[in-house]
Simulated assay, not measured.
Amino acid sequence: MRVVVTGAAGFLGWHLRARLRAGGGHEVVPVDREAFADLDAEVAGADAVVHLAGVNRGGDDREVFDGNVALARRVTEAVRRSGRSPRLVFANSLQVGNGTAYGEAKREATQLLHDGARSAGSPYVDVVLPNVFGEHGRPFYNSFVATFCHQVVAGDEPTVDDREVELLHAQDAAAVLVGALRGLSRTERPRGTVVRVAEVLDTLRRYDTHYTAGDLPETGARFGRQLFNAYRVAAFERRGPIPLVARSDDRGRLVETARAHGRGGQSFVSTTVPGARRGEHFHLEKMERFVVLRGRGRIRLRRLFSDQVRAFDVTGDAPVAVDMPTMWVHDLTNVGDSELITAFWTDTVFDPAHPDTYRENVDVVGAEVSLP
Protein backbone atom coordinates (compact mmCIF):
# COMPACT_ATOMS: atom_id res chain seq x y z
CA MET A 1 0.00 0.00 0.00
CA ARG A 2 1.30 3.46 -0.92
CA VAL A 3 0.42 5.79 1.97
CA VAL A 4 0.71 9.57 1.81
CA VAL A 5 1.15 11.12 5.28
CA THR A 6 0.63 14.85 5.67
CA GLY A 7 2.30 16.45 8.67
CA ALA A 8 4.90 13.67 8.52
CA ALA A 9 7.56 15.88 10.08
CA GLY A 10 5.43 16.54 13.14
CA PHE A 11 5.23 14.64 16.42
CA LEU A 12 2.39 12.23 15.56
CA GLY A 13 3.63 11.97 11.98
CA TRP A 14 7.01 10.71 13.20
CA HIS A 15 5.37 8.10 15.42
CA LEU A 16 3.09 6.94 12.61
CA ARG A 17 6.04 6.57 10.23
CA ALA A 18 7.94 4.61 12.91
CA ARG A 19 5.04 2.19 13.29
CA LEU A 20 4.64 1.78 9.53
CA ARG A 21 8.40 1.19 9.24
CA ALA A 22 8.23 -1.49 11.92
CA GLY A 23 5.27 -3.23 10.32
CA GLY A 24 6.65 -3.16 6.79
CA GLY A 25 4.57 -3.70 3.67
CA HIS A 26 3.86 -0.03 3.02
CA GLU A 27 5.50 2.61 0.87
CA VAL A 28 5.24 5.76 2.96
CA VAL A 29 5.30 9.16 1.26
CA PRO A 30 6.00 11.84 3.88
CA VAL A 31 4.56 15.27 3.11
CA ASP A 32 5.58 18.25 5.21
CA ARG A 33 4.21 21.79 4.94
CA GLU A 34 6.62 22.76 2.16
CA ALA A 35 5.64 19.71 0.07
CA PHE A 36 1.94 20.62 -0.01
CA ALA A 37 2.57 22.33 -3.35
CA ASP A 38 3.24 18.86 -4.82
CA LEU A 39 0.35 17.16 -3.04
CA ASP A 40 -1.61 16.43 -6.22
CA ALA A 41 1.25 14.43 -7.71
CA GLU A 42 1.77 12.41 -4.53
CA VAL A 43 -1.92 11.64 -3.98
CA ALA A 44 -2.39 10.67 -7.65
CA GLY A 45 -0.57 7.39 -7.00
CA ALA A 46 -1.71 6.81 -3.42
CA ASP A 47 -3.78 3.97 -2.01
CA ALA A 48 -4.39 5.94 1.19
CA VAL A 49 -3.93 9.44 2.58
CA VAL A 50 -3.49 10.03 6.32
CA HIS A 51 -4.05 13.69 7.10
CA LEU A 52 -2.18 14.76 10.25
CA ALA A 53 -1.03 18.26 9.30
CA GLY A 54 -2.60 21.03 11.32
CA VAL A 55 -2.16 24.39 13.02
CA ASN A 56 -2.16 24.06 16.82
CA ARG A 57 -1.18 27.62 17.61
CA GLY A 58 -1.08 30.88 15.72
CA GLY A 59 -0.98 34.61 16.07
CA ASP A 60 -4.74 34.68 16.67
CA ASP A 61 -7.83 32.48 16.52
CA ARG A 62 -8.46 33.35 12.87
CA GLU A 63 -5.04 32.05 11.88
CA VAL A 64 -5.66 28.75 13.69
CA PHE A 65 -9.12 28.31 12.15
CA ASP A 66 -8.21 29.35 8.61
CA GLY A 67 -4.96 27.35 8.63
CA ASN A 68 -6.60 24.05 9.58
CA VAL A 69 -9.50 24.50 7.18
CA ALA A 70 -7.16 25.43 4.31
CA LEU A 71 -5.06 22.30 4.85
CA ALA A 72 -8.15 20.07 4.88
CA ARG A 73 -9.48 21.73 1.73
CA ARG A 74 -6.13 21.21 -0.01
CA VAL A 75 -6.17 17.48 0.85
CA THR A 76 -9.77 17.20 -0.33
CA GLU A 77 -8.93 18.83 -3.65
CA ALA A 78 -5.96 16.51 -4.18
CA VAL A 79 -8.12 13.43 -3.52
CA ARG A 80 -10.81 14.63 -5.93
CA ARG A 81 -8.27 15.33 -8.66
CA SER A 82 -6.45 12.03 -8.19
CA GLY A 83 -8.74 10.11 -10.51
CA ARG A 84 -8.91 7.26 -8.02
CA SER A 85 -10.45 6.58 -4.63
CA PRO A 86 -7.71 6.45 -1.99
CA ARG A 87 -8.75 5.68 1.58
CA LEU A 88 -8.76 8.93 3.58
CA VAL A 89 -7.91 8.92 7.30
CA PHE A 90 -8.07 12.05 9.45
CA ALA A 91 -6.42 12.57 12.83
CA ASN A 92 -9.16 14.53 14.55
CA SER A 93 -9.21 15.79 18.13
CA LEU A 94 -11.38 15.29 21.19
CA GLN A 95 -11.63 19.10 21.16
CA VAL A 96 -13.67 19.00 17.95
CA GLY A 97 -16.60 21.40 18.12
CA ASN A 98 -15.80 22.65 21.63
CA GLY A 99 -16.24 26.31 20.67
CA THR A 100 -12.54 27.18 20.48
CA ALA A 101 -10.94 28.20 17.18
CA TYR A 102 -9.05 24.92 17.09
CA GLY A 103 -12.11 22.82 17.95
CA GLU A 104 -14.29 24.57 15.38
CA ALA A 105 -11.56 24.22 12.76
CA LYS A 106 -11.45 20.46 13.41
CA ARG A 107 -15.24 20.28 13.03
CA GLU A 108 -15.10 22.12 9.72
CA ALA A 109 -12.11 20.08 8.52
CA THR A 110 -13.72 16.69 9.15
CA GLN A 111 -16.84 17.78 7.29
CA LEU A 112 -14.78 18.94 4.31
CA LEU A 113 -12.81 15.70 4.26
CA HIS A 114 -15.92 13.55 4.65
CA ASP A 115 -17.70 15.33 1.79
CA GLY A 116 -14.59 15.19 -0.40
CA ALA A 117 -14.10 11.49 0.23
CA ARG A 118 -17.74 10.76 -0.60
CA SER A 119 -17.46 12.76 -3.82
CA ALA A 120 -14.35 10.77 -4.83
CA GLY A 121 -15.84 7.44 -3.78
CA SER A 122 -13.14 7.10 -1.11
CA PRO A 123 -13.63 5.37 2.26
CA TYR A 124 -13.25 7.89 5.09
CA VAL A 125 -12.18 7.24 8.70
CA ASP A 126 -12.37 9.99 11.32
CA VAL A 127 -10.01 9.14 14.21
CA VAL A 128 -10.87 11.25 17.25
CA LEU A 129 -7.85 11.42 19.54
CA PRO A 130 -7.52 12.62 23.14
CA ASN A 131 -4.32 14.33 24.35
CA VAL A 132 -1.38 12.53 22.76
CA PHE A 133 2.06 12.19 24.39
CA GLY A 134 5.22 10.20 23.83
CA GLU A 135 8.87 10.17 22.89
CA HIS A 136 10.17 13.31 21.18
CA GLY A 137 7.22 15.49 22.02
CA ARG A 138 8.12 19.14 21.62
CA PRO A 139 8.24 20.94 25.01
CA PHE A 140 5.80 23.84 25.43
CA TYR A 141 4.03 22.79 22.23
CA ASN A 142 2.87 19.18 21.76
CA SER A 143 2.01 18.13 25.30
CA PHE A 144 2.46 19.12 28.93
CA VAL A 145 4.11 15.69 29.33
CA ALA A 146 6.88 16.74 26.94
CA THR A 147 7.26 20.00 28.85
CA PHE A 148 7.48 18.22 32.21
CA CYS A 149 10.03 15.69 30.87
CA HIS A 150 12.19 18.53 29.59
CA GLN A 151 11.93 20.49 32.84
CA VAL A 152 12.49 17.56 35.19
CA VAL A 153 15.59 16.42 33.29
CA ALA A 154 16.90 20.01 33.25
CA GLY A 155 16.29 20.43 36.99
CA ASP A 156 13.70 23.16 36.48
CA GLU A 157 10.52 23.66 38.52
CA PRO A 158 7.39 23.11 36.37
CA THR A 159 4.21 25.12 36.81
CA VAL A 160 1.18 22.88 37.39
CA ASP A 161 -2.38 23.64 36.31
CA ASP A 162 -3.84 20.58 38.02
CA ARG A 163 -6.84 18.90 36.42
CA GLU A 164 -7.90 15.55 35.07
CA VAL A 165 -6.76 14.81 31.52
CA GLU A 166 -7.02 11.81 29.21
CA LEU A 167 -3.63 10.80 27.78
CA LEU A 168 -2.96 8.45 24.87
CA HIS A 169 0.54 7.39 23.86
CA ALA A 170 1.48 8.37 20.31
CA GLN A 171 2.22 4.74 19.38
CA ASP A 172 -1.29 3.74 20.46
CA ALA A 173 -2.66 6.59 18.36
CA ALA A 174 -0.49 5.45 15.45
CA ALA A 175 -1.77 1.87 15.85
CA VAL A 176 -5.35 3.09 15.41
CA LEU A 177 -4.36 5.13 12.34
CA VAL A 178 -2.65 2.07 10.84
CA GLY A 179 -5.74 0.01 11.63
CA ALA A 180 -7.82 2.58 9.77
CA LEU A 181 -5.82 1.77 6.64
CA ARG A 182 -7.20 -1.76 6.84
CA GLY A 183 -10.83 -0.77 6.96
CA LEU A 184 -12.02 0.14 10.45
CA SER A 185 -15.36 1.90 10.90
CA ARG A 186 -16.00 5.48 9.83
CA THR A 187 -15.33 6.89 13.30
CA GLU A 188 -12.70 5.66 15.75
CA ARG A 189 -12.35 6.99 19.30
CA PRO A 190 -9.39 5.30 21.06
CA ARG A 191 -9.45 5.58 24.86
CA GLY A 192 -6.47 6.80 26.82
CA THR A 193 -5.67 6.89 30.53
CA VAL A 194 -7.38 9.49 32.72
CA VAL A 195 -4.88 10.98 35.16
CA ARG A 196 -4.28 14.23 37.02
CA VAL A 197 -1.61 16.60 35.74
CA ALA A 198 0.06 16.82 39.16
CA GLU A 199 0.20 13.02 39.33
CA VAL A 200 2.12 12.91 36.06
CA LEU A 201 4.67 15.38 37.40
CA ASP A 202 5.07 13.45 40.65
CA THR A 203 5.65 10.25 38.68
CA LEU A 204 8.27 11.86 36.44
CA ARG A 205 10.08 13.24 39.48
CA ARG A 206 10.12 9.77 41.03
CA TYR A 207 11.49 8.32 37.79
CA ASP A 208 14.21 10.97 37.75
CA THR A 209 15.28 10.27 41.34
CA HIS A 210 15.87 6.60 40.53
CA TYR A 211 17.20 7.01 37.01
CA THR A 212 19.76 9.67 37.85
CA ALA A 213 21.38 7.05 40.11
CA GLY A 214 21.30 4.47 37.33
CA ASP A 215 18.31 2.55 38.72
CA LEU A 216 15.28 1.52 36.67
CA PRO A 217 12.13 2.68 38.51
CA GLU A 218 8.92 0.80 39.09
CA THR A 219 6.54 1.84 36.32
CA GLY A 220 3.51 -0.31 37.07
CA ALA A 221 1.01 -0.71 34.25
CA ARG A 222 1.64 -0.04 30.57
CA PHE A 223 0.84 3.68 30.87
CA GLY A 224 3.63 4.09 33.42
CA ARG A 225 6.06 2.32 31.11
CA GLN A 226 5.07 4.61 28.24
CA LEU A 227 5.55 7.66 30.45
CA PHE A 228 9.00 6.38 31.45
CA ASN A 229 9.96 5.81 27.81
CA ALA A 230 9.04 9.44 27.04
CA TYR A 231 11.05 10.64 30.05
CA ARG A 232 14.15 8.56 29.36
CA VAL A 233 14.46 9.79 25.76
CA ALA A 234 14.66 13.32 27.14
CA ALA A 235 17.19 12.12 29.74
CA PHE A 236 19.30 10.34 27.10
CA GLU A 237 19.44 13.35 24.80
CA ARG A 238 20.61 15.62 27.62
CA ARG A 239 22.78 13.27 29.72
CA GLY A 240 23.90 10.34 27.54
CA PRO A 241 25.31 7.20 29.21
CA ILE A 242 24.88 6.63 32.95
CA PRO A 243 28.11 6.12 34.95
CA LEU A 244 28.12 2.97 37.07
CA VAL A 245 30.06 2.30 40.27
CA ALA A 246 32.65 -0.50 40.05
CA ARG A 247 33.45 -1.97 43.46
CA SER A 248 36.86 -3.65 43.71
CA ASP A 249 38.73 -5.75 46.26
CA ASP A 250 41.48 -8.35 46.16
CA ARG A 251 39.09 -10.83 44.52
CA GLY A 252 38.25 -8.57 41.56
CA ARG A 253 35.40 -6.20 40.64
CA LEU A 254 31.62 -6.07 41.00
CA VAL A 255 29.39 -3.86 38.83
CA GLU A 256 25.63 -3.62 39.37
CA THR A 257 24.46 -3.32 35.77
CA ALA A 258 20.69 -3.09 36.31
CA ARG A 259 18.86 -2.34 39.55
CA ALA A 260 15.25 -2.71 38.45
CA HIS A 261 12.63 -1.73 41.02
CA GLY A 262 9.52 -3.90 40.97
CA ARG A 263 10.23 -5.61 37.65
CA GLY A 264 11.88 -8.74 36.33
CA GLY A 265 12.75 -8.77 32.67
CA GLN A 266 15.64 -10.68 31.19
CA SER A 267 19.42 -10.48 31.60
CA PHE A 268 22.00 -11.99 29.29
CA VAL A 269 25.69 -11.70 28.45
CA SER A 270 27.40 -11.77 25.06
CA THR A 271 30.94 -12.10 23.83
CA THR A 272 31.92 -10.34 20.61
CA VAL A 273 35.08 -10.93 18.62
CA PRO A 274 37.19 -7.96 17.41
CA GLY A 275 35.56 -6.12 14.52
CA ALA A 276 32.17 -7.85 14.88
CA ARG A 277 28.93 -5.92 15.27
CA ARG A 278 25.69 -6.65 17.13
CA GLY A 279 22.29 -4.99 17.16
CA GLU A 280 21.28 -3.06 14.02
CA HIS A 281 17.62 -2.85 15.00
CA PHE A 282 15.11 -0.70 16.89
CA HIS A 283 12.24 -1.25 19.32
CA LEU A 284 8.83 0.42 19.61
CA GLU A 285 8.34 -0.17 23.35
CA LYS A 286 11.04 -2.45 24.78
CA MET A 287 13.60 -1.08 27.25
CA GLU A 288 17.12 -2.34 26.61
CA ARG A 289 20.36 -1.60 28.50
CA PHE A 290 23.94 -2.26 27.33
CA VAL A 291 26.89 -2.39 29.76
CA VAL A 292 30.37 -3.27 28.44
CA LEU A 293 32.29 -5.12 31.17
CA ARG A 294 35.49 -6.05 29.35
CA GLY A 295 37.16 -4.79 26.20
CA ARG A 296 36.48 -1.72 24.06
CA GLY A 297 33.24 -1.15 22.21
CA ARG A 298 31.48 1.56 20.27
CA ILE A 299 27.73 1.99 20.68
CA ARG A 300 25.99 3.95 17.94
CA LEU A 301 22.42 5.21 17.90
CA ARG A 302 20.30 6.99 15.30
CA ARG A 303 16.80 8.29 15.75
CA LEU A 304 14.50 6.94 13.04
CA PHE A 305 14.34 9.10 9.89
CA SER A 306 17.37 11.13 11.01
CA ASP A 307 20.89 11.08 9.54
CA GLN A 308 22.52 12.13 12.83
CA VAL A 309 24.36 9.27 14.56
CA ARG A 310 25.40 9.50 18.21
CA ALA A 311 28.34 7.30 19.10
CA PHE A 312 29.84 6.42 22.48
CA ASP A 313 33.17 4.70 22.99
CA VAL A 314 32.76 2.48 26.04
CA THR A 315 35.19 0.31 27.95
CA GLY A 316 35.10 -2.29 30.67
CA ASP A 317 37.63 -0.19 32.59
CA ALA A 318 34.96 2.47 33.27
CA PRO A 319 31.51 0.80 32.93
CA VAL A 320 28.53 2.91 31.92
CA ALA A 321 24.92 2.01 31.20
CA VAL A 322 23.62 2.97 27.77
CA ASP A 323 19.83 2.62 27.57
CA MET A 324 18.48 2.43 24.04
CA PRO A 325 15.73 5.00 23.47
CA THR A 326 12.65 3.55 21.83
CA MET A 327 12.53 4.06 18.06
CA TRP A 328 16.27 4.68 17.85
CA VAL A 329 18.29 2.26 15.71
CA HIS A 330 21.36 1.00 17.60
CA ASP A 331 24.36 -1.26 17.28
CA LEU A 332 27.47 -2.33 19.21
CA THR A 333 30.89 -2.96 17.61
CA ASN A 334 34.02 -4.44 19.16
CA VAL A 335 36.65 -1.82 18.32
CA GLY A 336 39.37 -3.38 20.47
CA ASP A 337 41.93 -6.13 19.95
CA SER A 338 40.46 -8.59 22.48
CA GLU A 339 37.11 -10.21 23.15
CA LEU A 340 34.30 -7.83 24.15
CA ILE A 341 32.06 -8.90 27.05
CA THR A 342 28.73 -7.08 27.33
CA ALA A 343 25.86 -7.45 29.79
CA PHE A 344 22.34 -6.73 28.57
CA TRP A 345 19.03 -6.20 30.35
CA THR A 346 15.56 -5.89 28.84
CA ASP A 347 12.37 -5.19 30.74
CA THR A 348 10.52 -8.08 29.08
CA VAL A 349 11.30 -11.74 28.55
CA PHE A 350 11.96 -12.33 24.85
CA ASP A 351 8.89 -13.64 23.03
CA PRO A 352 9.65 -14.96 19.50
CA ALA A 353 6.01 -14.36 18.53
CA HIS A 354 6.19 -10.69 19.57
CA PRO A 355 9.87 -9.73 19.64
CA ASP A 356 9.42 -5.92 19.26
CA THR A 357 12.71 -5.97 17.35
CA TYR A 358 12.84 -4.47 13.84
CA ARG A 359 15.88 -4.70 11.59
CA GLU A 360 17.49 -1.49 10.37
CA ASN A 361 21.08 -0.33 9.93
CA VAL A 362 22.45 2.62 11.84
CA ASP A 363 24.45 3.57 8.75
CA VAL A 364 22.58 5.67 6.19
CA VAL A 365 23.79 7.67 3.21
CA GLY A 366 25.17 11.03 4.35
CA ALA A 367 25.07 10.18 8.05
CA GLU A 368 27.00 12.45 10.40
CA VAL A 369 28.58 10.80 13.43
CA SER A 370 29.06 12.74 16.66
CA LEU A 371 31.21 11.55 19.55
CA PRO A 372 31.03 13.18 23.01
Rank of each mutant, 00 (worst) to 15 (best):
G252W: 11
R225Y: 11
V43R: 11
D307P: 06
G192K: 02
R118P: 06
L301N: 08
R189W: 07
P217W: 02
A367I: 01
N142W: 10
T348E: 15
G67Y: 12
T357I: 08
F144R: 03
F36Y: 14
L254K: 07
V322N: 07
W14A: 10
A44M: 06
G262K: 04
Q95S: 15
A8C: 01
R2T: 15
E157H: 12
V29L: 14
A78P: 04
Q266L: 04
F305A: 02
D208Y: 09
H330T: 01
N92L: 12
H136K: 12
R80H: 10
E218G: 12
V200Y: 12
S306R: 08
R277S: 11
E104W: 12
L201W: 10
E218M: 08
G240M: 04
S338W: 06
V69S: 09
V3Q: 07
G220E: 04
A198Q: 15
L20S: 05
K106P: 08
E288H: 04
G13S: 05
D363I: 07
E339N: 02
E188P: 06
E280N: 03
T159E: 15
P139L: 02
F312P: 06
D337L: 11
A221H: 14
D215I: 05
A235G: 05
G103W: 12
A120M: 05
D115H: 13
G179N: 00
T187H: 11
D215K: 12
T342C: 14
D323I: 00
A146Y: 04
A22R: 07
V362Y: 07
G275P: 06
P274E: 00
N98T: 05
T193R: 15
R251G: 10
A105H: 04
E218S: 13
R251M: 11
C149V: 03
V127T: 00
Y358Q: 02
A70D: 14
W14D: 12
F223V: 02
A35N: 08
G83I: 09
A170L: 02
Y124E: 00
I299E: 11
A35T: 09
V75L: 02
E108G: 10
N131W: 13
G10L: 00
T346D: 08
R138W: 06
E157V: 15
L129K: 00
V125I: 05
V178W: 10
T76P: 05
L113R: 03
G279L: 01
T219W: 12
V4L: 07
A109M: 11
G279Q: 02
R206W: 09
F140N: 01
A367C: 13
V160G: 05
G10W: 07
H51T: 02
F36E: 14
D162T: 01
T219R: 14
R196T: 02
A353H: 12
D323Y: 01
N131T: 15
A213S: 14
E157A: 14
R73W: 13
V194M: 09
L304I: 01
S85F: 09
E27D: 13
L177M: 01
S248C: 14
A72V: 03
V4D: 05
L227W: 01
D249H: 06
F11C: 01
G121L: 08
E237M: 10
L332H: 00
T6P: 06
